[in-house]
Design a protein around this nucleic acid. Structure first.
Length: 474
RNA sequence: GACCCCAUCGUCUAGCGGUUAGGACACAACCCUUUCAAGGUUGAGACACGGGUUCGAUUCCCGUUGGGGUCGCCA
């Protein structure tokens, strides 16, 4: 079996959107599974719309997702000469011809075809016309002579056999009037030259494949295996394209999603392996194949992605998380963390990551660790700290001061003992403590919070909150 | 409009002729519990419709409906 070669071929007109990311993932997985190569080609033949920023955004997006490509990314634009060469060969062989139809004429043809309910829009005017009839001063385009009768079929690895009547196929433009190659020509030539064996791409190219395959046959080349995967739809069921509010992967990164969570979620969107949900990348490489790809389109569900992200967050190492979360905390605090605070963050992470769903979430939930004294109280914390609770805190201070080793067990023993002497359930003491310590009604376990905060900071916060007036500080 | 593709819980999906139609997210209840998560248990929730084929269709075929995609000298 020859080496498997796949490719991801985005056009650099914007960021790497989520659908493109999934296409890239599938190509990457398929190549890695077969120990083949995964190539990257930038389809920048449309100079007006291609930007270098977009190229960079796409490369960064792929790197962030951990989808490494083999060799250098190829610029399609730089291969224009080779494309022209192929077009010329087609003309020489009688498989293509010059078309001098004006834009107005073409518009009229389309109009006519539409009203007649025809699929073929170009009427073939210049198909067999003698070149001597060419009008003066009009630069022609090169069109491909598509078969007029019969059928064209591709055996798609995902969709199965797809057949179209050739009378529905147009004579596609290969070279524009200015001599630049079109996408249709460029993909075919580049895939051939790059040795691409498997073309895995979005469903929106399924119709193109039927045209491209005839081009390939005319050139005498071997057609690749096709696998057209269904598109990702938005929550509303409509196509999730760039122009319909789809987000770039960097947006997901900024929202605090982990690349492994995105990878896993995207993998499960349209591909399955029995009932498996959480699948490591190693496992995915081992299992991935076309058999597992579903035919129907899938809707993007933020809730499930978020749930998965929470899973991977809990799985993630604290050192790594600290690096990812610290900048987000710094942004919220509008200052950088000190070394001591960095250490505090690291110590708090095991408790924090247990209940976060995104990195932003995590950063937000960590904020109270970095105030001097009790942080501003939110509404629920303020409600907890009524007169009775404040008085209670005043009484608990001595019990805390008496704790010898500032660790979970001694702290818990002290607070439980205090609650018992007060004739209260633990919660009646824990909630006010939490409110005073964190300014919130929700946090990691109070004893974990106390341990991480340290003795003096805890006593400062509890002592401060136990004094009558103050409800704000820090 | 023409052409192409698709169709199982709200969502992602398992199923590859015979199942009490399974799992996950979300939802509800309960358990656990110092709050919130996590975890555990339970519950509600689907084969779009109509014809065939077959002893038997969620599964195979056809049609209908619905959804999506493509119709550029964009990619």
């Amino acid at each position: 079996m020859p080496e498997v070669v796949t490719r991801f071929a985005p056009s650099p007109t914007g960021f790497l959107h989520i659908g493109g990311a999934r296409t890239a993932l599938f190509n990457w997985l398929f190549a890695r599974h077969h120990e083949g190569r995964f190539l990257l080609r930038i389809e920048d033949t449309d100079r007006a719309r291609s930007t270098d920023e977009a190229v960079q955004a796409i490369l960064e997006g792929l790197r962030w997702l951990g989808l490494d490509w083999d060799g250098d990314a190829i610029s399609q634009f730089t291969r224009a000469d080779r494309h022209r060469e192929a077009a010329q060969a087609l003309v020489d062989a009688g498989h293509a011809y010059r078309c001098y139809a004006s834009p107005e004429e073409l518009a009229a043809m389309r109009e006519k075809a539409r009203t007649e309910g025809k699929t073929r829009l170009y009427d073939g005017t210049w198909r067999d016309r003698d070149p001597s009839e060419a009008p003066e001063g009009v630069a022609p385009v090169i069109r491909f002579k598509a078969p007029l009768t019969g059928t064209t079929t591709i055996d798609d690895a995902v969709q199965g056999p797809v057949t179209v009547q050739n009378e529905n196929l147009d004579d596609i433009v290969l070279l524009r009037a200015d001599g630049t190659p079109t996408y249709m020509l460029a993909v075919v030539v580049d895939d051939q030259d790059m040795g691409v064996t498997h073309v895995i791409r979005g469903d929106d190219h399924l119709n193109n494949a039927l045209r491209q395959v005839n081009l390939i046959r005319a050139l005498g080349w071997q057609e690749p295996h096709y696998a057209h995967i269904s598109l990702i739809h938005g929550p509303d069921g409509a196509k999730m394209s760039k122009r319909h509010g789809a987000l770039g992967v960097e947006a997901y990164r900024d929202m605090g999603y982990l690349p492994e969570a995105i990878r896993n979620y995207l993998l499960r969107l349209g591909w399955s392996h029995g009932d498996d949900e959480f699948i490591s990348t190693e496992q995915a490489i081992e299992w991935f194949g076309f058999e597992g790809i579903g035919k129907s389109a899938a809707r993007f569900d933020f809730a499930k992605l978020t749930n998965m992200n929470g899973h991977y967050l809990r799985q993630a190492g604290d050192t790594r998380l600290a690096v990812l979360v610290a900048p987000r905390i710094a942004k919220a605090l509008d200052r950088n963390l000190t070394d001591a605070e960095q250490a505090r963050l690291l110590a708090a992470l095991p408790d924090l990551k247990q209940r976060a769903t995104t990195l932003n979430d995590l950063a937000e939930s960590a904020l109270f660790y970095f105030s001097d004294g009790t942080p501003p109280l939110d509404d629920k914390a303020r409600a907890i700290l009524d007169d009775e609770a404040v008085a209670l805190l005043g009484r608990v201070v001595p019990a805390l001061e008496a704790v010898a080793a500032w660790e979970n067990e001694p702290l818990e023993a002290a607070v439980r003992g205090f609650a018992e002497t007060e004739g209260l359930k633990l919660g009646k003491v824990a909630q006010p403590l939490r409110a005073a310590l964190t300014g919130r009604a929700v946090s990691p376990g109070v004893f974990d919070v106390m341990r991480v905060l340290g003795r003096s900071e805890c006593l400062k916060r509890v002592g401060g909150a136990s004094r009558p007036a103050p409800s704000h500080e820090g």
